[in-house]
């Protein structure tokens, strides 16, 4: 009996514990934004929480950040109007603007018009960086990042096809998708895959943080530049939040000069962007059969 009683007490306590963290229900329209989980995922809320605080002050409206698990989830949430504003990669951005009529790119990082990917290789492969495209890639095992990543999949695949005239499956002995940029580094470093491709920013950051053993894994090639990350806002925000709201959000992003907030992306600053800036990405995605 005492056991049962104890179980009941514990249960009751936990119920109240659960009730205590009941999320508040909003009644004013809330701007919800999200971002593709491209790196440093364990601290998404910490990273993007600062952004919502900044936007909230600037726009004088409640701004909430929702973490998502995948690039596709970010696009789906945007399409379903669960989020109205999103920090997308090149590919997810054009997917979103294609799926949601009226939505448009409003800002990009100053680095983004000329983004690049790094190809990295395990030291044991003997492949080293040189002038031009490295020799000896054929027949190796190779990992992309996320299936929907621009710098971890789309553009590397494009350049590989351009270089070899055949699909990655035909070039390499094994092709995998690590899921994200940090995982690509870990897998190539452990030798699970011999070669990989990823965003230059993530590589540079991890090297600076000292989490990469550069004796084991090295950059062997840098791709030509292409446009990548950008902010996209839904076309119907003006109707929900008032006339000229999209413009206000754009100004807020362009005026952002708080280092702490910018480091969440990480970007030096934001500059204007339009949908047309990302047409090359759309064409590439179509040519690779990733979009219809």
């Amino acid at each position: 009996m005492s056991k049962r009683l104890m179980a009941a007490v514990v249960a009751a306590c936990m119920c109240f514990g659960l009730l205590a963290c009941d999320p508040a229900t909003p009644n004013k329209p809330v701007l919800v934004f999200s971002a593709i989980p491209d790196q440093d995922e364990a601290r998404l809320i910490e990273r993007f929480g600062k952004v919502s605080t900044y936007l909230s002050e600037k726009l004088d409206i409640e701004v909430r950040y929702v973490p998502v698990k995948s690039y596709a989830a970010a696009v789906t949430a945007f399409r379903n109007n669960e989020v109205q504003l999103a920090w997308f990669g090149g590919l997810s951005g054009v997917q979103a603007t294609q799926l949601v009529p009226g939505s448009r790119a409003i800002a990009q990082g100053v680095e983004d018009p000329r983004y690049v990917s790094y190809f990295i290789a395990h030291r044991d492969t003997g492949i080293v960086a040189g002038d031009g495209f490295p020799e000896g890639l054929e027949g190796r095992s190779f990992t992309f990042g996320s299936k929907s990543s621009t710098s971890g999949r789309l553009m590397p695949e494009f350049f590989l096809r351009e270089q070899f005239g055949k699909s990655p499956e035909a070039i390499f002995s094994r092709v995998g998708f690590s899921g994200d940029h940090s995982a690509t580094i870990a897998l190539v470093q452990s030798g699970a895959y011999e070669v990989g491709a990823l965003s230059y920013q993530v590589w540079d950051k991890e090297v600076a943080d000292g989490t990469v053993d550069t004796d084991k894994v090295q950059v062997i090639w840098t791709t030509p530049p292409y446009p990548d990350y950008h902010w996209v806002i839904r076309g119907d925000v003006d109707a929900t939040f008032g006339e000229g709201f999209a413009g206000k959000v754009q100004r807020a992003l362009l005026e952002l000069d708080d280092r702490d907030v910018l480091d969440a992306f990480p970007r030096q600053k934001f500059i204007p962007a339009t949908n047309d800036d990302f047409l090359p990405i759309l064409d590439t995605a179509r040519s690779l059969g990733l979009m219809d």
Binding site: E41, A42, P67, K69, S70, S182, A183
Partner: peptide, 24 residues
């Protein structure tokens, strides 16, 4: 279900292991 983005414990578990945050 956390692996596909629902806010359950799997969300964080998958992230932690994929990101190499093994203590977490």
């Amino acid at each position: 279900l956390g692996f596909i983005g629902l806010p359950t414990i799997g969300f964080h578990l998958e992230t932690a292991f994929r990101q190499g945050e093994y203590s977490t």
